[in-house]
Design a binder for these strands. Structure first.
Lengths: 144, 144
DNA sequence: TCATCACTTAATAAGTTATGCAATTGATTT
DNA sequence: AAATCAATTGCATAACTTATTAAGTGATGA
């Protein structure tokens, strides 16, 4: 990217409302954000932010499974599933456990399980009035 | 070589891995995933999966703010902030409210607020002990 | 009306991420 | 040791995201 810096750079140029004329000041607000936590949390959320990975995780939410079982259940290739698991592992969302030829994966902890459950729950809640996207071979049963 | 400790009440089965000859069958597993919910949930998570957007959201988690206040607090340009808000709006994560010249944004609902809080909490938790974690046995009392 | 403020949208360039196939590693069986 | 099975890795190409500047809305007030 080219980022041509003007002679004297103006970091937060202030074209807007004068400070303090309404609401809390930028300084007050800045004190409230923890950049590091945000970055870590965003990493986790980004890893959860893909339909294929979410499907994989809803499987693991119920039981530990090996890679082939997952690939078979999702009707996808072994390398594709393996890549997803690698990404999830890098964010500490799933854990690995070898047993002979098989490598079993499970959700890393209860916290993650709840995060996923809440995401699904929220999505299901908004399911009724979401965007018209009607072509859905829909499995009956629980929202998950 | 049998499964030493089945994490759930999985039926102990033949460890060989021909399609569907151990563990739950692909058909059984497929019945457990709701593709539509996964897609919606993934959309929300993806929107949360960016550090800049998470910072923005942690601000909104505390108070309703107008675009300029956010831009000023994050020391970022108005267009950049506006684009992020547009994306978050498209996933129904934030809501808009005009008041004169200003447009105020807030988190869409309590559910979202909890999702964000949990993500940050989880991130902070792992921040404390960030060593290569060993096998923490996954109790898997299915919350889903 | 015209000017200005607060914000949004457009355009496009730069970077990032996903996908599919082939090759590879690691563990077990023969 | 060789063969086989389970899973991972590497790499090239395609698809998607994000940043940045400039132009465009809509509300307010002179």
């Amino acid at each position: 990217m080219k980022r041509v810096s003007p002679p004297n750079d103006l970091p937060a140029k202030n074209p807007e409302c004068s400070p303090g004329d309404h609401g809390p000041s930028a300084v007050e607000l800045r004190a409230q954000i923890d950049e590091h936590s945000c970055r870590l949390a965003a990493g986790i959320f980004r890893a959860l932010g893909d339909p294929a990975r979410m499907q994989l995780l809803t499987l693991l939410a119920r039981q530990e499974l090996c890679v082939s079982e997952i690939a078979s259940a999702l009707q996808d290739s072994l390398p594709a599933v393996s890549q997803r698991l690698k990404l999830l592992r890098s964010e500490r969302i799933v854990t690995q456990r070898r047993e002979g030829k098989h490598i079993y994966y499970a959700l890393a902890d209860q916290h993650i399980a709840e995060l996923i459950a809440n995401g699904i729950a929220h999505a299901s809640e908004h399911f009724r009035d979401r965007r018209a996207d009607a072509s859905q071979p829909h499995a009956a049963g629980s929202p998950l």
